[in-house]
Design a protein around this nucleic acid. Structure first.
Length: 898
RNA sequence: GGGUCUGUAGCUCAGUUGGUUAGAGUGCGUCGUUGACAUCGACGAGGUCUGCAGUUCGAGUCUGCACAGACCCACCA
């Protein structure tokens, strides 16, 4: 008999199992002999940023997607999971800059070329780490299709899409007010700006002594660029000034201010009059457009005051503010300063305050009507893709549904998307300039004197193409044909649109919506049929996990090592619902580790119980001998269909719970116990076979390990060899079980459940009288006992020794050796009252004694503080006591019998 | 300011289209096990389903309001 350890030692086997899978080549569907008409199933992995390492959120993503992939692969579909990484331009550049700072360098000292080399190296190293970690999680993705948003093929896709958009007039260049990060020295998209509430001063002042009324501002330094003052048209105080142009000398700088009316002005805020600075405020910019105001730029790209503002020029924004306030005070123009709370816009990457300023940038026009969308805009088309469906597809389904609403409102309010960034690391714009000429193309233009635009593209531009760009194998696969992007590969035909996009809800707008935009436009098709959004993985206290909080932060690799990857995966899959955050902590993982141990021990029992144990894929009705066989097999087939339906509907947690209930409460607790007395190895082999298959997508390692071992035992070959021509004995590519209706036996289920219930009642007193429920079932199965007798047994009542409640009680029966009929007669003939009194007295004494000892020993403080030796000794003592008590109880029982 | 979500046992959460006595896991208490299972089993305690009102024969579930919390969007001169 093989030596099997009592617990599953995850970290001993996992790497080996992964290697076995990987070497089989079956992560790649091309290596599986599938029928031509096999259905296709594809997921494109949300590419982790190359900035860092795997965190619990990525582990969640991998667990869910691998579950889906393994389930569908086992269903015989042509299944592929395409992995990749994202260059994450701003984030990665910042990360490398931080490292440089430690060396006392910065990117300008290094120069662009050297800097980019370093970034590339960093990205490559990081990618290696990410791959290693994804493998540790058991991810069954096809590494031969690995993609990177900056590799040659993906870059080619980016250029093609950019050109296509430019030619369609969807991409334009213009000077517009943008969010500028003075530290990153780049623009930011609207949704890359975050807000922080802060306390700040609001100043109420006059531009100069002659100006007719007061205005309020939190940013006096921008007032150098004011070209108008806006008031509410209904405001009686200022009505008479509307339309006037007033000259003013503002702290030494001459201004010409037009008084305009705008309904957006709040009469009750400040003085009700607002100084309009078109160049440095989003709202003011829009007013300036409407009223054709002059635009005066005050602040430059380093957040310093520009030339021609006298003594303020060259000063930083903060310095200029102080000096202007000082100057106003000096001139007696400052009426008052109050403290208020407002929102400061900051860069989402580096938290530096944003300066809105006008800049020449590239934009995607989301409102332009385009012919190929039947005269509809991108915005309208993408709205319909989820609402009604486009291009003959069903509507894209967002799970959970409530996020659809968010999507619609976002899409509705979408404004032109600024795609150019002044970041070094990223896709360079495929745009060249010569004098006044502009050339946009996939390849650089012929002829001299062309210079390429120095800007790079927003990182979401390339990740927006992800579902189809990953389907190309080489740049030549990508071309523009009939106003669309053409990807000329088998993968594209087979796998696009992908089945599902799975990601965390926080990038619904950043990424998911952008993918819908870019794909509907570029390919003329939807990128995916379903969107599954998982929640945020949080710590015990509900806070976001972060390395800066090491006491609650969980590194997935640490816990995988400690408890096994399977337990970690289960902890992320069970007890969670889509779109809702989940709290995770070690105890949770530990509990699920116990379940993995349970499965392991089910297998261990199988091997111990029968030296000839083998897994069986099928069982016939004739093979089911006892009632318990019929019951468990029937239950199993119910579970198979329920779990399959749940998985189809993305109810992973529910499926897991049902499986857990079946495995633990029905298979292990009942069937295995009965099996000890009456063996049916064929049924046992069948049950384990199915249980392993059902659990495999949830916990691939332990199930594969057991599967392998079971076959090793059978064939006595070590190690078993697998080849592409012989995929048979690898669980990963086994067929997913199908529920066999013929094996569902409602009658047997009902009969067994009744029995369970009755035994449950008898069981209540099992602890005192050592009645083994297995024996009752066994006796029933062998027709020693019939249902009526068992029912009677369940009804026989004695008073509980503690006098709490009436409990069914049966005295001293040995079900197997004894004749149950006689036993029952004894039970019925007992003088209940007399028996009660005698027993009560004796038992009360005993219970008292026991509780005293147990109390002492179960005292946690005592156990925790005491050295192990002492606790050990006391345990021995306890056992001595128990022995004594036991023998006394036996005595009592005998008395009772007489 | 606009919107979304959440509130169920000490803790973490399920609860499908309204339908018997509101569930699971964990924790706690008691007892029993140590020959598949550094475990496991049985039993027990623990809930005004945040509150109020409404619809209904019937509400954890639907509606309205209130309270508490989380998040998203817009944005404050």
């Amino acid at each position: 008999m093989p030596e099997i350890p009592k617990t599953y030692e995850a970290n001993k086997y996992e790497d080996g199992i992964y290697k076995l899978w990987e070497e089989s080549g079956f992560f790649n569907p091309d290596n599986l002999k599938l029928p031509k008409n096999a259905k296709n199933y594809s997921i494109v992995m949300p590419p982790p940023n190359v900035t860092g390492v795997l965190h619990m959120g990525s582990a969640m993503m991998l667990a869910v997607e691998d579950l889906l992939i393994r389930y569908n692969r086992m269903q015989g579909k042509r299944t592929v999971w395409i992995p990749g990484t994202d260059h994450a331009s701003i984030a990665t550049q910042n990360r490398v800059e931080k490292d440089l700072k430690k060396e006392g360098l910065d990117r300008h000292i290094l120069g662009k070329k050297e800097f980019l080399k370093r970034v590339e190296k960093f990205a490559l190293d990081s990618q290696k780490t990410i791959i290693k970690q994804a493998k540790k999680m058991g991810s069954s993705c096809d590494w031969s299709r690995l993609a990177y948003t900056m590799d040659e093929t993906r870059s080619c896709a980016v250029k093609n899409v950019f050109k296509l958009m430019y030619d369609d007039g969807l991409i334009y260049r213009g000077k517009r007010i943008v969010n500028w990060c003075p530290r990153c020295h780049s623009t930011l998209a609207n949704d890359e700006v975050e807000y922080e509430t802060q306390k700040t001063k609001i100043y109420t002042f006059k531009y100069d002594a002659n100006f007719p009324f007061l205005i309020s501002t939190t940013r006096p330094e921008t007032k150098l660029g004011d070209t108008a003052v806006a008031v509410n048209p209904k405001d009686e105080r200022y009505k008479k000034f509307i339309g006037q142009k007033i000259k003013a000398n503002f702290v030494g700088i001459p201004l010409e201010l037009e008084i305009i009316s705008d309904r957006g002005v709040d009469m009750n805020f400040g003085t009700g009059a607002l100084g309009v600075t078109p160049a440095h405020s989003m709202v003011d910019w829009k007013m300036a457009q409407k009223n054709k105001l002059r635009i005066i730029e005050v602040i430059d790209e380093s957040a310093k005051i520009k030339e021609s503002f006298g003594k303020f020029s060259g000063k930083s924004v903060a310095e200029a503010r102080d000096e202007i306030v000082e100057e106003l005070k000096k001139r007696g123009l400052l009426e008052k300063e109050d403290e208020i709370e407002n929102n400061l816009s900051v860069c989402y990457r580096c938290s530096t305050p944003i300066e809105p300023l006008p800049s020449l940038q590239w934009f995607v026009d989301v409102n332009k009507k385009i012919n190929k969308f039947k005269g509809k805009s991108i915005k309208e088309t993408c709205f319909q893709a989820v609402k009604k469906g486009v291009f003959g597809n069903k509507p894209i389904k967002i799970i959970p549904k409530r996020f659809e609403k968010n999507y619609f409102t976002w899409m509705d309010n979408l404004e032109d998307w600024c795609v150019s960034r002044q970041i070094w690391f990223g896709h360079k714009l495929p745009v060249w300039y010569k004098d006044e000429e502009i050339y946009v193309g996939v390849k650089s233009p012929k002829g001299n004197n062309w210079t390429q635009d120095e800007d790079t593209l927003d990182t979401w531009f390339s990740s927006g193409l992800w579902t189809f760009s990953t389907m190309a194998k080489k740049p030549e696969d990508i071309s523009i044909e009939k106003g669309k992007i053409k990807i000329d590969t088998k993968d594209f035909k087979n796998f696009h649109p992908t089945a599902i996009l799975e990601t965390m809800y926080d990038i619904l707008f950043f990424w998911v919506a952008r993918m819908i935009i870019m794909t509907t436009y570029g390919i003329g098709d939807i990128p995916f049929q379903d969107v599954y959004l998982h929640g945020c993985v949080r710590d015990k206290f509900g806070d976001k996990m972060s390395k800066s909080k090491p006491e609650t932060n969980i590194d997935p690799l640490d816990v995988c090592d400690k408890y096994g990857t399977d337990a970690v995966r289960l902890s992320l899959l069970i007890g969670t619902t889509p779109g809702n955050d989940l709290k995770i902590y070690e105890e949770k993982i530990q509990n699920l580790r116990n379940f993995v141990t349970k499965i392991w021990n089910i297998y261990r029992y199988c091997i111990f119980s029968s030296p000839t144990f083998i897994l069986t894929s099928d069982v016939r009705k004739e093979d089911l001998k006892s009632l318990s066989d019929k019951w468990i097999v029937s239950q199993l087939n119910n579970v198979i269909s329920e779990v399959s339906i749940d998985l189809e509907n993305y109810k992973f947690s529910l499926a897991g719970e049902k499986l857990q209930k079946f495995t633990w409460d029905e298979l292990a607790s009942w069937y295995l116990e009965i099996h000890k007395l009456e063996k049916n190895d064929k049924v046992l082999g069948y049950l384990l076979d199915k249980v392993l298959k059902l659990w495999h997508p949830f916990m691939p390692f332990v199930t594969e390990k057991i599967w392998q071992d079971a076959y090793k035992t059978k064939f006595k070959v070590r190690p078993l060899k697998f080849s592409r021509s012989n995929p048979g004995k690898m669980l990963m590519v086994e067929k997913w079980p199908v529920s066999d209706k013929k094996l569902i036996d409602k009658k047997a289920e009902k009969e067994f459940q009744d029995l369970q219930e009755m035994i449950g009642k008898i069981r209540n007193i099992r602890s005192s009288y050592h009645i083994d429920p297995r024996k009752i079932i066994n006796a029933y199965s062998n027709k020693i006992l019939n249902k009526e007798i068992i029912e009677k047994l369940a009804r026989v009542k004695f008073s509980d020794p503690k006098g709490q409640k009436d409990r069914p009680l049966e005295s001293g029966i040995d079900m197997v050796s004894g004749n149950s009929k006689i036993v029952l007669d004894i039970a019925e003939s007992i003088d209940i009252e007399k028996e009660k009194k005698n027993l009560e007295k004796e038992i009360a004494n005993l219970e008292n004694l026991i509780s005293k000892i147990e109390c002492l020993l179960n005292n946690k403080n005592f156990l925790a503080s005491a050295p192990r030796e002492i606790v050990g000794n006391n345990k021995i003592k306890l056992n001595e006591y128990r022995e004594k008590i036991k023998s006394q109880k036996e005595l009592l029982k005998n008395i009772a019998k007489l």
